[in-house]
Design a protein around this nucleic acid. Sequence first.
DNA 1: AAATTAATTTAGGCATACCTAAATTATACA
DNA 2: TGTATAATTTAGGTATGCCTAAATTAATTT
Lengths: 223, 223
Amino acid sequence: MLTHAAEDYLKSIYKLQEEGGKVSTGILAAYLNVKPASATGMIKKLKTMNLVSHERYRGVTLTDAGKAIALEIIRHHRLLELYLVKALGVPWDGVHDEAEKLEHVISEDMEARMDEFLGYPTADPHGAPIPDKNGVVAQTEHIPMTALQNGQSCLVAEVNDADPALLRHLGSLNLYPGTAFRVKEVAPFDGPFTIDIAGKQVVIGREAAKHIFVDNVQDTETE
Amino acid sequence: MLTHAAEDYLKSIYKLQEEGGKVSTGILAAYLNVKPASATGMIKKLKTMNLVSHERYRGVTLTDAGKAIALEIIRHHRLLELYLVKALGVPWDGVHDEAEKLEHVISEDMEARMDEFLGYPTADPHGAPIPDKNGVVAQTEHIPMTALQNGQSCLVAEVNDADPALLRHLGSLNLYPGTAFRVKEVAPFDGPFTIDIAGKQVVIGREAAKHIFVDNVQDTETE
DNA sequence: AAATTAATTTAGGCATACCTAAATTATACA
DNA sequence: TGTATAATTTAGGTATGCCTAAATTAATTT
């Protein structure tokens, strides 16, 4: 069995690979709040286990075996987040940290039981896809909110789960995945967004908007 | 924060203190499947943290602070066991190992939410008392089944949770805490027990009986 | 009381996973 | 192309928690 740290490295490499592309030692170290030298050491170890490919100075890539483990951990994490919200009523800004600890520890049996309890869900409370038990991730098209134009309407698809304070803020505005809103005004020079949501008018700062992703974007009349 | 290993030591010292009395380095090491030298090392560390008292060659005792932590971990473990049975339908012979891993990892918030979900229970699925959130353990009088005489009836109070195979066996006989039975015959020379349980007649081997504890013992007519 | 046996502790080592500091390699620019 | 800068790796050190083997202390037996 792998150590928790090794699992965290694999998970992080997967995520960085998804969004960025090339995963350098430095990027990985920064992402994990660890010094580059420490990342070098772990990469070496993972390489001997055939979980990553690595060429000096050229970055890491997951092997199929490494990717399978990364997806398994991500599946645990996201199932746990949803389970904590649905079964125990934990607020959505609290589930990330709890799941971060539990994901390394639960058995396959518990994973299966939570999956069944939740009705085989495909997204966690923040809208991130839950890989199925074979590691298949439903492909989704999420557009950054910052790309929206005046007058466009859409559905919240996903929000970044890392910052609890941001999540509390978004929760207070009801910006949960699945919620519809319409862009009323985008202030110039990278200013804030004014949106219509559930009949109310709300201002979303640029920084917050960067952490929100949407889909079902449609052009509507600007009044 | 304490390491998982340190928590396991405190928990084990507490349990050995409960049943036995004096906890020697060797007993503790054997209980934890560790060499005596390793136990010596951890005891030293726990002593510097004022969690145990220790005199060379005279055994360990928990300080109040150490006892509080031990009870906290035991509370986690037993709440988790009951939660896994009630909320996720895990069979009672599977919950011990799962709880053993989770007990070190759950937050106080999760502990409180499980406690509420379960209705502030006082015993785990094996009948062991769950300390309350202040570390108070309800005192119970559990008599070993091996002390029962012909014709006595009683309620199952607690069974040893360590051996899954035994638990499966007891489960198949419906010997869960709370279940009533009556001793029909005790075979001489430390032989097996024949009991009446839910209308059926069942034979319980001596070894199994050692792991069963009862209460509400009453003398009934021997037919 | 001395000698044997058992329990405990000390000493020294290993693996994990982190760190800092120094050395190396690659890249960018003048 | 040579040199400065940035990224990466190597080298050596820390702490945890385990191990074995040797030394010490206590308890038991005769």
